[in-house]
Simulated assay, not measured.
Amino acid sequence: MCLLFAVSTATVARAMPEQAVTLATCYGYYAAAVDHSRLDQGEHDGARMRRDLFEAMTNALVAEQATDRRLTISVTQTRVQARAQMRRLMRSAYFDADARRQRIALANIRRQLSACNAALLDRRYSGF
């Protein structure tokens, strides 16, 4: 599952476990989705719930590795970069004048959030 096709974390990804990259990225994506829902004054409890879940999972992973300060910094950088990327996509999807760019951005948003939803269902993250 490639969640980070546009998030430039090549050096961060080597230092971080794949699980940490995935959780931090999804946390950033859903943080941007919640921010966007505030702009359009919609109620997106599902996005809030997923953001909170990814936040809790990311925090738990970082707490397990509390002695590794580089991991904490890398997770924060990955989350911030993912959030910025999703905000750019949402800006293009909802405010761009070009209909083609809007469709492409919406498709990318759907693909990335679907990958995050699949990660929630993946056994690696459920603890079984």
Rank of each mutant, 00 (worst) to 15 (best):
T11K: 15
Q41F: 09
A118M: 05
R110V: 00
Y125H: 15
Y125E: 11
D98P: 12
F5G: 15
A47S: 10
V12E: 15
R48P: 08
R50N: 11
Y29G: 01
S114G: 10
A118R: 13
D68P: 07
A118Y: 03
D40E: 11
E43F: 02
A93F: 00
R88M: 13
Q19A: 05
A47D: 11
D45A: 13
D98Y: 06
H36T: 02
S37D: 01
R100E: 03
A66S: 12
D40C: 09
T76M: 13
V34A: 01
R110I: 00
R14F: 00
G127S: 07
Y27V: 04
M1Q: 14
V34R: 01
R38E: 07
V12W: 12
M90F: 04
Q85D: 15
A82E: 05
D52V: 02
R87Y: 03
V75S: 04
R124Q: 07
A93Y: 01
Y94K: 08
S92D: 13
Q65A: 04
S92I: 12
V75W: 03
T9F: 11
R110G: 00
N108V: 01
A31Q: 01
A115C: 10
Y27G: 06
M90R: 11
F5M: 15
R101P: 11
I109L: 05
T58Q: 05
A24S: 09
A47H: 12
I109A: 03
L61E: 07
N108R: 07
T67N: 07
G28E: 01
D98V: 06
A97L: 09
A33W: 01
A20F: 01
A13K: 15
G127E: 07
S126I: 10
D98C: 06
T58N: 05
R14K: 13
A10H: 06
A6C: 14
A56V: 06
C2A: 13
C2S: 14
L121C: 10
F128C: 15
G46F: 05
A32K: 03
R79M: 13
S8F: 10
G42V: 04
E55K: 09
R83C: 08
G42K: 14
A66W: 09
A107Q: 10
A60S: 03
G42C: 03
F95P: 03
D122A: 11
R100Y: 00
R69Q: 11
L106V: 02
T76Y: 10
